[in-house]
Simulated scan of single mutants.
Amino acid sequence: MYSAWDEVQPNHIYQVTKSFPLTEEGDNGLMYLYQPIIGQKALALYYGFLGDKDDLFENEFAHIDMLDALNMGLPDFLEARKQLEGMGLLSVFAKEDSEFGKMFLYRLEEPIHPQAFFQDETYSFLLLNTVGERKFRQMVRRFQPEKPDLTGYQEITRGFREVYGALDEQRFSRNAQQLEKTFA
């Protein structure tokens, strides 16, 4: 019979990585949009991993320390981790190390922007079914972009070419490969 102990043990070592700092929109999305779906334990685990990522003195951690910090057992930890994985908030990698045994790398993913969250049918459906129609409508209003009254105004914003001119296309072509490698 399979148990949480078959997948991870308290003495297993892990590292945490995240490509970019958590944005304010991501933080708000976690609190108001993801949390009702993933639950408090998964949210606490995300923030626990984020805290580990930001630790200036350590970069390797034992699962037992996270379990103690969150006051949860291994089955709850694994369930919370799976909630994060299922919602695209965490990618999990494992390897066997000759000295330390099984090791994990947890890559925190940025929550999608609240507008994109509501445009995603699956995420919207999950949230609606979790919080109900009244609260769902309230959340949609909370994250709607501000639309100022522009009555009487005329837009005079300058375009890119007007401000910066045309790009030197030959120079751009020479640098195209370099630019493509930047985010590959």
Score class of each variant (00 low, 15 high):
S3D: 05
A4L: 07
D6V: 02
V8F: 04
Q9D: 06
P10A: 10
H12A: 10
Q15Y: 03
K18C: 10
F20M: 00
P21K: 01
T23E: 01
G26Y: 01
D27F: 09
N28W: 08
G29D: 01
Y32T: 00
Y34Q: 01
Q35F: 02
I38C: 05
K41W: 06
K41A: 14
A42Y: 00
L43A: 04
L43T: 09
L45M: 11
Y47N: 05
D55E: 06
E58V: 03
N59R: 12
E60M: 07
A62S: 06
H63M: 05
I64P: 02
D65M: 06
D65I: 03
D68E: 14
M72F: 07
L74P: 07
L74N: 08
E79C: 04
A80I: 12
L84W: 01
L84V: 08
E85V: 15
G86H: 08
G86F: 02
M87V: 00
L89F: 00
L90M: 08
V92C: 04
K95M: 11
K95F: 04
S98R: 13
E99W: 00
G101I: 10
G101N: 10
K102D: 03
K102M: 10
R107F: 02
R107K: 13
I112Y: 03
Q115H: 05
F118I: 00
Q119V: 02
Q119N: 13
Q119W: 06
D120N: 15
Y123T: 01
S124H: 07
L126Q: 13
L128V: 02
N129E: 15
E133H: 10
E133A: 14
R134L: 07
K135A: 13
Q138S: 11
M139Q: 13
R141I: 10
R141V: 12
R142A: 09
P145H: 07
K147S: 12
P148T: 08
D149M: 05
L150F: 14
Y153Q: 08
Q154E: 13
E155Q: 11
I156H: 14
T157N: 14
R158K: 15
F160W: 12
Y164K: 10
A166S: 14
E169L: 15
R171Y: 07
R171P: 01
F172R: 12
N175R: 15
Q177T: 14
Q178A: 14
K181G: 00
K181A: 04
T182Y: 12
F183I: 11
